[in-house]
């Protein structure tokens, strides 16, 4: 296919990026010019920019990433006002530069939440999510060898709903998109994935209470039902999970014997 005319046209972009030297630094936006090809991913565009900066003896822009294939939940960024950029159900690492054209301006900001303090530039500390999980996002049984697949049978509808909830990669886009920086969609997905399965029943009440409690302690906001989280979620987690968590929490608050 050597003769095909897939010669890519580079585009020149103006990017404005939040720079912040450390947690206690004030921070501010800085403008850069960068050339990118439409075939690059968004993070590759940042890689190119960083190489240029470092070649000039300047410090590269710190941003989070790991798998770069949309499954680990490490990448973040609010791109032109949208967590993970404009593409539906797509993480920043899977966003491609073909969404942009020559001469475009792109503003890149970190996910903003008091509970997600900035470490440096675009890197944020999302360990608040870990602590919510540690508060109850598990079942207390010994893990031995993998159990026989059909030892506990689950109807298809329940299994599908649980799997949909379990698709959450914990990236925090829901918090970033929420006008109140609420962690409701994340917490609800983690509550739901267990509440929908037989193994999750025994600790269903204590789990809902403990995880909501930790969510509040971390300083996340409360849900005002704009559903911006659902629109921003790269994994399509729905707000039905939030309603489920609300039900579980309400019931647990009045009936739990723990």
């Amino acid at each position: 296919m050597g003769s095909s005319s897939t010669e890519t046209k580079m585009m020149r972009l103006n990017v404005e990026i939040w720079r912040q030297a450390g947690p206690s630094d004030g921070g501010g936006f800085e403008s850069y010019k960068v050339e990118a090809s439409p075939d690059m991913s968004f993070l590759e565009m940042l890689d190119v920019l960083n190489e240029k900066l470092m070649a000039d003896g300047r410090e590269g822009i710190a941003f989070d990433h790991d798998c770069r294939e949309g499954i680990c939940g490490m990448c973040s960024l609010v791109i032109n006002g949208q967590p993970h950029g404009p593409e539906n159900e797509t993480t920043t690492c899977q966003l491609h530069m073909r969404n942009y054209k020559d001469g475009d301006s792109i503003t890149i900001e970190p996910f903003r939440a008091t509970a997600f303090p900035i470490v440096k530039d675009l890197v944020i500390d999302r360990s608040a999510f870990d602590r919510i999980l540690q508060a109850g996002g598990y079942i207390s049984v010994n893990t031995g060898a993998a159990p026989d697949a059909h030892a506990v049978q689950v109807p298809k509808v329940q299994a599908d709903l649980a799997m949909d909830a379990a698709a959450c990669i914990g990236c925090g886009a829901c918090v970033a998109a929420c006008p109140n920086a609420a962690a409701m969609l994340f917490t609800a997905a983690k509550v739901s994935q267990l509440a929908l399965l037989p193994q999750g029943q025994a600790e269903r009440s204590s789990r809902a209470i403990a995880m909501v409690d930790q969510m509040d302690k971390e300083g996340f906001g409360a849900c005002t039902n704009h559903y911006e989280c659902m629109a921003a979620c790269p994994k399509g987690i729905t707000v039905e999970n939030i309603a489920r968590m609300n039900r579980d929490h309400l019931r647990a608050s009045f009936t739990s014997r723990d």
Binding site: R112, T114, A181, A182, G221, Y227, M230, A232
Partner: peptide, 19 residues
């Protein structure tokens, strides 16, 4: 509480979902 939870706001914001 919700205002506090956001802290520093965004420079640019595109409203989504049912906002």
């Amino acid at each position: 509480r919700n205002r506090e939870a956001r802290g520093v706001g965004y420079r640019q914001r595109t409203h989504m979902g049912e906002s």
